[in-house]
Amino acid sequence: MLTFNNPTTVEEAVALLQKTDSRQRVLAGGTDLLVQLRSGRIQAQGVVDLKRIPELRTIRTENGGFRIGAAVSGAELGEHPALSTMWPGVIEGARLIGSTQIQGRASLGGNVCNASPAADGVPGLIAAGATCTIVGPGGRRVVAVDAIAVSPGKTSLAPGEFVVDFFLPAQAAKGGDAYLRFIPRTEMDIAVVGAAVNLLLDASGVCTHARVALGAVAPRALLVEAASHALVGTRVEAAALEALAAAARAACAPINDKRGTIEFRTQVAGVLAKRAAIIAYERARSRA
């Protein structure tokens, strides 16, 4: 039988995880963990519920940006107007995870640490240049979000470590981001392809900086530098978008599985990158 603990401080959680062996699973939202435990896909000896730790449940402004607790639910993210206004693409990604019911539970921490290449919350965070705070027996460390997932189901976290929070820096005055995913239905599916674009414009509307991240087209979400280069120095016009699509497709290394084919994922990655770039560009342009 599984043990169950619900510590109320980070220190208590670290101590618990250190004391027990590595087959303790941390529970943030539980929307992946409970399904995996039930199906027998993962084996565990215990569950450590992090939701009673206030630090993991709050959203705070910091240096013009936001610090988001790892166990904040998707619904709570969506209810934070300032956050949605500054980082609409990040929040769109987080809000696309599952149904209304899933949104009541699912967390960014869980979405990142489940390490699915198709995680909807991840490309937006990567494109935004978000970092996360990891805590463990060795104390705290800060890493870029794209450094967490290694391959499907595997993270770079050491035994006993967990993610405390995410930091989204202040968005630039003329910056805009967007996330789009492809699913066969309109809801309830896992992304077949995901694309996030975050870009920065100068006063004349020329893109000076861009980050493009793709989901579900490789063993983990990708930051595609060549795709970023396709946008920088352009007004995100047709030729730039075609170059972006080509770069996005070139970066794809997907698999055939029950959700899509290699050809489909590669083709649609280009389409979604273009569409996300157009939305991000419009958002950046319309920003005061």
């Binding site: 066969p184 239905r185 309109t186 809801e187 309830m188 599916d189 896992i190 029950k258 959700r259």
Partner: peptide, 11 residues
């Protein structure tokens, strides 16, 4: 029901 895709309300 995640991957056997029956129509949902928003479809």
């Amino acid at each position: 029901f995640l991957d056997y895709r029956m129509p949902v309300a928003s479809d």
